[in-house]
Amino acid sequence: MDNNEEILMLTFQDLHIGFGVSKGAITKIKRKELRVLFTSENLTFKPGEFVAVIGPNGSGKTTLFNTILGHQEPLSGAIEIQGKIWKDLDKMEKAKHLSFVPSKFNGVDHLTVYDLVAMGRAPYTNMLNKLTEEDQLVIQKVLVQLGLTNFVNKNTINLSDGERQIAMIGKALSQEAEIMILDEPTAFLDYNNRRKVLQLLKEIAKVNNQIIFISSHNLELCFEYCSRVVAIDANAKQLLDFSAPFDKEKIINKVF
């Protein structure tokens, strides 16, 4: 985050996303049938972009995220971050570049909002998880940015769904990772909270100079808040790239 000279870039290089990759030499699994969900040409994402991934159910949004997160491998091609091949980075390195927010968090008893946000500092703390001055400053900054200062000592089980989602975003933010991925962040939120969260994410992408990916079925809101939309055309099995301003009719007709 303090590299002012280099601009972080996330690139998809000739990516084929799907599943059924056979495992290596450790287990002798029969070579499964490879099923390609979609392919993508070379795409580059820069900091400050708020990108929505849209597509019909089953088109491969979750698979794409799993591939970026490292839970799966791409069938071919590579994802590179700042020139380095993504899957070659070790776990700690990955945690400093990438953070993830699931669509629903039910809270953990006795885990306060402060504790939850502090968990995001894990890649930077020592073995006993001691929070240094710097760690505490980062956590404070995140709490202020998200308006969580009044909830700091509240048990996460006692929060409302909207507050919990924002607290989870806080945890992802305190990781100080350049890339943040949210899987359907608005799925369980009410109308007001949806707009609130997306507005927050849009500001965060600009202010913190991060690349934020969300997947969503809420097309109207995506078109309203995002700077870029990446759509999976299930018929052509292609990843389409659109930047603002969006021609909504055209995109919807092509994809759905």
Partner: peptide
């Protein structure tokens, strides 16, 4: 430290290193 991080589940813990 890893025990503390496991509270959010395996996937989240894995993404925290």
């Amino acid at each position: 430290k890893p025990l503390n991080l496991l509270l959010l589940g395996d996937k989240s813990a894995s993404l925290l290193g």
